[in-house]
């Protein structure tokens, strides 16, 4: 029952892992529920070569132990670089919302609804759609429905906003040379 950590990126803890059935996966932080992609055998070598993986060939007794090792690599790397990595991608944000524990969800959904009230529709959609993939939220019917409703409302409002901006627009009168820029939240 061995898992082989074939290779890892030493900068952010992505790993190529063969499980105990010989299936190979690309795994990435934060591990656990998301981010496990099946790799065919032909993909292993090109992936290692192209994406800066370091060959490790270490064996571990379980997925947890493999993740542990990769977390260690990632933490170590981030500590070494200090705060130089200071950008949050939308994917980082989504990973955060997918990982919120059960007991913190009521407060999280309240926060989501407050963004709706404030008119921050972009955040509602991004945060809401990630929350719908949160395994803990799926178990809570009422909260799940609240999140779905908030997303729909945010999308409707956004649509209304776009429509209202165009309500006075008559293409036949438009100045062909003028450029329109839309600023949609």
């Amino acid at each position: 029952m061995n898992f082989e950590l074939i290779a890892a990126t030493m900068t952010d803890g992505y790993g190529i892992v063969a499980d105990n059935h010989g299936e190979v996966y690309l795994v990435k932080p934060p591990f656990g529920f998301y981010g496990k992609y099946h790799l065919s055998y032909e993909q292993i070598e090109p992936t290692i070569a192209q994406f800066g993986f370091t060959r490790l060939g270490e064996t571990y007794p379980s997925w947890d132990a493999v993740f542990e090792r990769l977390r260690q690599i990632a933490w170590q790397a981030r500590r070494e670089v200090g705060d130089t990595n200071t950008t949050i991608s939308d994917e980082d944000k989504k990973a955060f919302f997918r990982s919120i524990p059960a007991g913190f969800l009521v407060g999280t959904v309240e926060k989501l609804e407050s963004y709706l009230t404030k008119g921050d529709f972009y955040s509602v959609v991004l945060m809401g759609e990630a929350l719908l993939e949160n395994k803990n939220l799926i178990k809570k019917e009422i909260l799940y429905a609240q999140v779905k409703a908030a997303i729909e409302k945010a999308k409707d409002k956004r649509q209304e906003l776009i429509s209202s901006r165009f309500s006075n627009l008559k293409p036949e009168n438009a100045d062909k040379k003028r450029q329109f820029t839309l600023d949609i939240q």
């Binding site: 932080p29 934060p30 591990f31 656990g32 200071t86 944000k93 990982s99 524990p101 803990n136």
Partner: peptide, 27 residues
Amino acid sequence: IDEITNPRVKLGAEVKNITELLTLINR
């Protein structure tokens, strides 16, 4: 959540660390 949704200061590694922490908590 506010800081992560609409960051006013530069946060990168911290968000990844906390996401991994929350994933551990989930377990």
